[in-house]
């Protein structure tokens, strides 16, 4: 693995009034890495993720994503990242192809590049023949896989996934992770949050946030060794309880 760092976070602090959502985070993510971002509800994950995506500005500290400072160059950062969340990912009342075309335009892809890459990705998903179907007619699993495809359509250097597999069946969940592996293999850095602890094991490295701090950051194997437990679930319970 190359040692190019695509996310650098130093002493990140984010406060809302008296409330400290992020209390001095420090970490970096390498290019092509699958980086798991875990934590209990309300531990500050969403806040940190919003900052990394350039949606929110840190109170203090340095955050560099894809080589740009998110505080000063949020727009440059946004061009170089993809984002997908469980809550919203695609427009239900547009067709598959219309959704893809819309996002390709948003990210300034040129038409021929979009047509070529769009078709290639859809064929891989075996959705190309169905590209004129409304997204609302797809099942949740398909929607999520398609949403991921849309998120990496413009070949971002980093893709942020916020609980991408919630409620999806075990088989589709695995197909989804295979797509993640493949993207990482192609050099796209994957930054993912999840509530499924077995998915934490798929990550190269994992952080666990507790009360706005990062309490653990390592490979799943080393974390299990450190806390002397057998699964990431137990690591999580040991830390967050």
């Amino acid at each position: 693995m190359e040692n190019e760092q695509v996310i650098i976070v130093r002493d990140l602090v984010k406060k809302f009034g008296d409330f400290t959502a992020n209390a001095g985070l420090n970490f970096h993510v390498d290019k092509g890495e699958i980086f798991g971002f875990l934590g209990a509800n309300g531990a500050g994950k969403t806040t940190a993720m919003r900052i990394l995506c350039g949606l929110s500005s840190p109170t203090s500290g340095l955050v560099e994503v894809a080589g740009y400072n998110v505080k000063t160059h949020a727009e440059e950062v946004k061009k170089r990242i993809g984002y997908m969340s469980q809550k919203f990912s695609l427009f239900e009342d547009l067709t598959i192809w219309e959704n893809m075309r819309f996002f390709s335009t948003v990210y300034g892809m040129n038409k021929t590049a979009f047509k070529e890459r769009g078709e290639m990705l859809l064929r891989k998903l075996e959705l190309f023949e169905k590209r004129n179907r409304l997204v609302s007619t797809l099942s949740l699993g398909w929607k999520q896989k398609l949403a991921f495809t849309v998120a990496i359509l413009h070949e971002p250097s980093i893709v942020f996934l916020d609980e991408p597999t919630g409620g999806v069946d075990p088989i589709t969940r695995r197909q989804f992770w295979e797509m993640i592996y493949e993207a990482a293999d192609n050099g796209i850095t994957v930054f993912v949050t999840t509530h499924y602890m077995d998915e934490a094991e798929y990550c190269n490295r994992v952080t666990i946030m507790v009360d706005g701090r990062i309490d653990a950051l390592d490979t799943p194997a080393k974390l299990k060794e450190k806390y002397q437990v057998n699964s990431m679930n137990d690591v999580f319970l040991a830390l967050a309880r």
Partner: peptide
């Protein structure tokens, strides 16, 4: 327990 973290689920 959908969308709830592992600790609360337990």
């Amino acid at each position: 327990t959908t969308g709830v973290d592992a600790v609360s689920r337990r």
